Simulated assay, not measured.
Amino acid sequence: MQIISELQGWIILGLGLLALGAEVYALLHAVRQRPDAFVAAGKQTKTFWVAALAIATLLGFAVLGGGFGILAIIGIVLAGVYLADVRPAIDSIMGRRR
């Protein structure tokens, strides 16, 4: 039974690292974009997204290795919304194809 518990711990750590990676990637993408691209894409401002993603990254780091609580879920949802909705719209406005 200890082996199963240890395996679960490693899986949670791996998922936490993947989530943190997505949050960091989303934050870095938002920081590198022009502020007017967010408005042109019809999304919230750059300041909003950078602040939200910075908080998401901090939440992801804070719960790393400690399991998935509501804080981890909030962080990955914020990053997921940015990566699935905002990033493609900004890339389209900026003339980048994905």
Rank of each mutant, 00 (worst) to 15 (best):
G65M: 06
V77R: 08
Q44K: 15
A30T: 05
A30G: 08
W10Y: 10
L18T: 12
L18D: 14
G65Y: 04
P35K: 13
I12H: 03
A40T: 11
A40M: 12
T45Q: 08
R97W: 05
I4N: 10
F61K: 00
A52R: 04
I90A: 08
V31S: 00
L20V: 06
L83Q: 13
A41I: 01
R32T: 09
R34I: 01
L15I: 09
G67M: 13
T47E: 11
Y25M: 05
D85K: 07
V50A: 07
A37V: 05
A52D: 03
I4M: 09
I74E: 04
L13I: 12
R87H: 15
I73Y: 15
V63H: 13
G9T: 05
R96D: 08
I12E: 15
I93G: 00
R97Y: 06
P35F: 06
E6W: 13
A54H: 00
A51T: 12
F61W: 12
Y82R: 13
A62I: 07
F38W: 05
V86D: 03
I90Y: 09
G14T: 07
A62M: 05
T57Q: 02
T45M: 03
A72M: 07
A51S: 12
I70K: 12
S5R: 10
Q44Y: 13
V24W: 11
L7K: 12
A37I: 01
M1I: 08
A89K: 15
T47G: 08
S5K: 11
R96H: 08
R34W: 10
A79R: 06
F68E: 10
